[in-house]
């Protein structure tokens, strides 16, 4: 596959190129792919590998010319995770970084718009992390709020 040849490593996975790079190689890899026709940035995903204590960021790129999909994967430590921002390469990366910052708590150096995105007033653990228990949270917050019963004797 063209992208694997360009970067020099990686493997094919279900028809997609899956390339694992180190954090410091990432910017050059994206730049190189972009210059060689991989000009459609599809999305940026994050995966929380709780047992391995790692976050994995996956940059998806697509080339309209060779019709090839690349997944560039970067791993980092779960504690104090941070990455350099790539929003200068593709403008929509800014939005994805905002979301991942909010949902996983990863810092992106160089992104000036890491403001609250989907949630308002949120001050608990970032909800997409695997150690955040959504069901327990629901029980503690929403189920503990009382119903408002009407007093039968008083009437309205």
């Amino acid at each position: 596959m063209k992208s694997i040849e360009l970067i020099g490593k990686g493997k094919e996975m279900h028809g997609r190129a899956y390339i694992e790079v180190m954090p410091d190689e990432l910017e050059n890899a994206i730049k190189k792919l972009k210059e060689n026709g991989f000009n459609h940035f599809v999305m940026l995903s994050c995966i929380d590998w709780l047992e391995e204590e790692k976050f994995e960021l996956v940059y998806h790129l697509w080339s309209y010319e060779v019709k090839e999909h690349v997944m560039l994967s970067v791993r980092m430590n779960r504690n104090n995770a941070s990455m350099p921002s790539m929003s200068h390469l593709f403008p929509q990366i800014e939005t994805y970084e905002r979301e991942i910052h909010e949902m996983y708590g990863i810092e992106f150096d160089g992104n000036n718009r890491l403001t609250p995105f989907l949630l308002e007033n949120w001050h608990h653990a970032p909800p997409m992390r695997k150690d955040f228990d959504s069901e327990k949270f629901v029980g503690k917050l929403y189920e503990s709020i009382p119903f408002i019963e009407e007093d039968e004797n008083e009437g309205i």
Partner: peptide, 24 residues
């Protein structure tokens, strides 16, 4: 029951769980 409704609304807006309100 305006006060009661307001109290419920305030709790849910602030995601206020009794006992654990420290900032993450």
């Amino acid at each position: 029951y305006y006060d009661k409704y307001k109290e419920n609304q305030r709790r849910v807006f602030n995601f206020e769980i009794e006992g654990e309100n420290e900032e993450y």
